[in-house]
């Protein structure tokens, strides 16, 4: 465990909490992609299946439970809460799950470190996390005017990924024999998806303007 990894995990948690608090406080989920949230829930469940038999540390176990719990709450709010579900922008959140899930499933069967069910599900979760933000980015693009909290949510998520890259660089430099190609390449692709958004986010922040994405 190093400071970069810790910062990454905290930023990840913070991003989820920002979203959850926004939904809870405003009783609105306008601008939030349910597809992305459900994909993240699938990512967490397939990756953290080992929660019950692979104990690594209390830190990891607590984070796993909290990530699954908080993301479930977001999905519950968007699908079931009587007021919140009415604000869901389903007409614009039209990204097809299959376009992301199917290639990730095939890829995880073809490229994995070990051919067994849990390793393949773990690999699937790594691939799926890399692209799970896409429905959210498409929704932001479509609705143009991005409210502050949604913008902050995506920004914090991107920052979390950036810190994970620093964590890998640090581990590679300090831990003999450490390598994780599959995770590195997926992570680089994932972080790459945020670059465009980051550019506009920083521009808006510099000019202290409302974040607006170009068409």
């Amino acid at each position: 465990m190093n400071l970069f990894r810790f910062a990454g995990d905290i930023l990840h948690l913070l991003s989820i909490l920002v979203l959850l608090l926004k939904i809870h406080a405003t009783k609105s989920c306008a601008g939030i992609s349910l597809k992305t949230q459900e994909l993240y829930l699938a990512v967490f469940i397939t990756r953290y299946l080992d929660l019950f038999w692979n104990f690594h540390s209390l830190y990891n176990s607590v984070f796993k439970v909290v990530y699954i719990g908080t993301t479930s709450m977001i999905v519950w709010y968007m699908r079931r809460h009587r007021n919140v579900k009415l604000t869901y922008d389903r007409d614009h959140d039209t990204f097809r799950y299959l376009f992301l899930v199917a290639p990730c499933a095939v890829l995880s069967l073809l490229i994995n470190a070990r051919y067994n069910l849990f390793e393949i599900l773990w690999t699937f979760s790594i691939y799926l996390e890399a692209v799970a933000i896409l429905p959210q980015l498409v929704l932001l693009q479509r609705t143009k005017n991005v409210d502050n909290l949604t913008g902050n949510y995506v920004f914090l998520l991107g920052l979390y990924r950036a810190f994970y890259i620093l964590n890998w660089v640090y581990r590679f430099a300090t831990e003999p024999g450490y390598s994780a190609w599959l995770v590195w390449i997926s992570g680089l692709i994932q972080t790459g998806l945020y670059l465009d958004f980051f550019y506009y986010y920083v521009q808006a922040w510099k000019q202290s303007k409302k974040l607006q994405l170009p068409s």
Binding site: H12, R47, N54, H56, N60, K64, Y67, A113, N116, V183
Partner: peptide, 10 residues
């Protein structure tokens, strides 16, 4: 599953 590579990151 516990032998070999261990997934220690989240």
């Amino acid at each position: 599953l516990t032998e070999g590579k261990f997934h220690d990151e989240l």
